[in-house]
């Protein structure tokens, strides 16, 4: 029972990280209708920035996180301006390939700048933990912070998209860009803001991911990126609560599959569950069913 609880908490913690990454995917997809394959690599950049800020310059972890968020936000805006904006009218496949190009670029630039030797990410929470049931169940502060961060981000984003002018503009753009433009919404700026928010979330996810799994290499972001993308589709891409549910479920499934079935097959089981879900609900758990008109 205690081991079960332990796995459950680990699963929720990992799932929260996936959910934060998945939010970035889902928001960008909802508005720009593109699969941003470079998202996983922005995570990696965020983790490196925080790593150098904390280990090399001795900054406080919170300052390191803020710095990572700032740099990733900037990076997201620059990528969008240089690589994606010129392709607004192009086919989605062309944008996809460009995103892959950006992903290659970030990975190789990171390899040149920081080499491919793994960096040991410092434990930002000093290894503090809460012990329950006579110390049989340990919950690290890192786990609690991760889960709390995920919940806070979710609430803030839901309020942001629901209440603010910018959030409403985002929803309008995701529904119909042409009509939104006619209503006086600056579509280009809205898309830029979405990229900025997505990249800031990627930075947070990168820092949280690396404090849980400390080995940092230039390809750190790609597998979590793919998993989070899977989580976004799982929950219904374009939906914010969907990203949360998809991410957390995916994390739990991955940890349980690894613990109770086979560590080597945990990835395969995650993807198998995704396939089954999509066959039953072709647009994900919370995705909108689009009716086809002739």
């Amino acid at each position: 029972m205690i081991t079960f609880l332990n796995h459950l908490i680990n699963g929720i913690s990992l799932g929260s990280i996936y959910a934060i990454i998945a939010l970035g995917y889902t928001m960008v997809y909802g508005i720009a209708k593109m699969l941003n394959f470079a998202h996983g690599d922005v995570i990696m950049v965020g983790a490196y920035v925080c790593f150098f800020a904390v280990s090399s310059f001795g900054l406080h972890p919170v300052l390191g996180l803020v710095l990572a968020i700032l740099i990733c936000t900037l990076l997201g805006i620059v990528i969008e301006k240089l690589a994606y904006k010129p392709l607004r009218q192009a086919t989605s496949l062309a944008v996809l390939i460009t995103a892959i190009g950006v992903s290659y670029f970030l990975q190789n630039a990171a390899q040149l700048l920081w080499t491919s030797n793994p960096k040991m990410f410092p434990d930002l929470f000093g290894g503090a933990a809460i012990r329950l049931f006579d110390g049989r169940l340990t919950i690290t502060v890192g786990t609690l912070v991760t889960i709390a961060a995920c919940i806070i981000i979710m609430v803030v984003l839901t309020l942001f998209t629901g209440k603010t002018r910018m959030g409403k503009a985002m929803r309008a753009c995701s529904e119909d860009k042409g009509a939104a433009q006619l209503m006086g919404i600056n579509v280009n700026r809205t898309i830029s803001v979405t990229f900025a928010i997505g990249s800031a979330l990627a930075a947070i996810a990168g820092v949280l991911l690396c404090s849980a799994y400390p080995s940092l290499v230039p390809t750190t972001g790609s597998m979590p990126g793919i998993k989070a993308f899977t989580a976004a589709v799982f929950g219904g891409i374009g939906s914010i609560p969907g990203a949360l549910i998809g991410g957390v479920l995916l994390g739990i499934i991955e940890i349980f599959a690894g613990a109770y079935i086979s560590t080597q097959l945990s990835n395969a089981i995650v993807f198998l569950v995704l396939i089954v879900v999509l066959l039953v609900r072709p647009t994900g758990l919370l995705g909108k069913q689009i009716r086809e008109k002739v």
Binding site: T98, G101, F105, N108
Partner: peptide, 16 residues
């Protein structure tokens, strides 16, 4: 590989 990535992005921009 960095050059490869840049070439890829530029070609996509140039053709689309």
């Amino acid at each position: 590989m960095l050059i490869y990535a840049i070439v890829l992005i530029l070609v996509m921009l140039a053709t689309n």
